[in-house]
Design a protein around this nucleic acid. Sequence first.
DNA 1: TATTACTGAGTACAACGTACCCGATTCAGG
DNA 2: CCTGAATCGGGTACGTTGTACTCAGTAATA
Lengths: 258, 258
Amino acid sequence: MATPQTGAGDPKRSLELLWREYGAQPSRPGPKPRLTVDRIVEAAIAVADREGSCFGMRSVSAELGVGAMTIYRYVPGKKELIDLMVDRISRFDGIQPDLSQLGWREGLELLAEGTWEVYEAHPWLLEINQRRPVLGPDSLAGYDFALSAFEGHDLPDREKNLVVTAVMNLVTGTARQYLLGDSADDAPETTESEWWKMQAPYLEKAVASGRYPRITVFADETAWDISAHESMRYLLDRFLDGLAPRMEAVRRAPEGPQ
Amino acid sequence: MATPQTGAGDPKRSLELLWREYGAQPSRPGPKPRLTVDRIVEAAIAVADREGSCFGMRSVSAELGVGAMTIYRYVPGKKELIDLMVDRISRFDGIQPDLSQLGWREGLELLAEGTWEVYEAHPWLLEINQRRPVLGPDSLAGYDFALSAFEGHDLPDREKNLVVTAVMNLVTGTARQYLLGDSADDAPETTESEWWKMQAPYLEKAVASGRYPRITVFADETAWDISAHESMRYLLDRFLDGLAPRMEAVRRAPEGPQ
DNA sequence: TATTACTGAGTACAACGTACCCGATTCAGG
DNA sequence: CCTGAATCGGGTACGTTGTACTCAGTAATA
C-alpha cells in the first residue's frame, strides 16, 4: 500500500491522541512498545523548556535515548506533538482554589496570574503558532475552572466566553511582547539593557530631528522601565474595573430564586 | 580575510538599515546596484502576504527576478529583513486624523482599530517571533501618533506608555488568537466550522462525562459564535471603561495654566 | 511451530538559510 | 586612453530541519 497515511498535520490524529483512552489494550502480536505518548510529550516539553520553541524532533528522540524516527511510531508529526504539548502544559498541577468562594474579580485575577505563570515557565509556548485552538482534556479543564469565576452571577454564556477569552488574550498579548526574549532559541545575543543602549543613539537622533514631537520622554529613564508583569496587571486591572459595573448588574440575589 | 562578517542576526546591522540615510552616495567602483533595500522589503512583504510567514528567501529572490543569493548583498540575513518588514508595515499610509481634536477615547479606539487592520492585512505579522521591539522610523511615527491621544491630559509619561502598550498588546493578543488561521502558511487544511465539527464529538463526550460541570453551553451554538473583531472590541471597551475615571482625573483645565 | 503484526533503527530526500567563490562590471588614478 | 581596485550578480554547496521509506528483529496468536 502506498503512503501509509503518516500524513502530517492531520487534526483528526491530534484529537484522537488528545482524547486517547487509557484502558487496557487487547493483547496484540509484536513487541511491547518501549515508549508511551505521555513520555514523549513530557520529554518534548523538557527539551522545549531547555532549547526554546525551535526544538528538533531529533532532540526529543535523543532525550528519550531512542532512534531519530522512533517517536514517529507514536506521534504522526511535529504539529500533533505540539498540540499535545500545549494541552499538557495547560494542566493545572497545583491545588485548585475554589473560585466560587472568592469574588468574580479575584477569580479572574487568579486565572490571569495562573496563565502568566505558565508562560513564564514555558516561554516557548508564545513562539508556537497555534493554527486553531486545540481543546484537549487539560485545556478544557482549565476553561471549566475559569468559568467557575462567574458563579453567583447571571452573565449570559456568550458574555462569559467573551470575558474569559479577553483575560487570556490580554495575558498572552502582554507576555508575547515581553517574554519572547527569554526563550533561548538560537541567539542569546544581547540583553534587554544592551539592546536599548544600542538603539539609544538612533532614537535620540530621531527625536532630535523633531519629526516625533511627542516622544520627548526618553529623558526620563524611569518612564520606560516597565516590567512585563506590571504591564499585564495594568491592562488587567483596567479591564476588570471596566467589567465591574456589568458584573454588579448581573449579580444574583444571595438567597432568593434567580 | 576569513568570515567577512556576514553574521546573521546582528542588531547593529538592523539598526543601520532601519535608519539608513538616503543621501547621495559617493560614487564608488563596481557596477551600480540593480536593487535597493526598499524594493527588497516591498517584495518580501508581497511574498509574505501571499505565502504566509514561512516565506523563503528564495521566494523573495524569485519575486525580484534575481539569483537566490543576490539579496544578501543588501540585507545581512532573514532576521534583519523581517525587522525591516515589520517597521515598513507599521507605516501609516492613510491620512492621519488629528487625534488631539478627538477625545482620548476615540483616539485610543482609532489606534486599536488601526493596529487591527494592519494585522488583518498582514496576518504573517502575528506569526513572526520578534525577539525585541525594533523601533524604526515608521514604528516610532506610529508611537508618536499614539501619544497624541493624551493631549489635554496630564497623565504621567510612564502611564502613557502603560496605556499605549496595553492597547497594542490587547489587540495583538486577540488578533493572534483568531487571525492566525487566515495566514496561508503551509496547510489550508480545514475551515473554522469544519474544525469545530471535527472537535464536537470529543467535546460532547467530554462534557457528558461530567468532569467539566460548568461547560454546558455547547448546546447554545450562538454562545460560541464570536467574531474576532467583536472579541477585541469587548476587551478594548472594558479597558477604556476602566481607564475613563483615571483620564477624567487628569484632565487639564481648558484655558488656565496646568 | 508457523504466521503475522508490530517495533525500532537506519538511510535518504526535499527544503531551508546562507557561506563561499568567481566572472563581469564600472569607477579612480595614471 | 589604460590599469587596478572595488563591487555586483549568480552559481554551487553545506549543514540542519522534518519526515518518508525500508528492513530486520520480536512476540502474541492460530
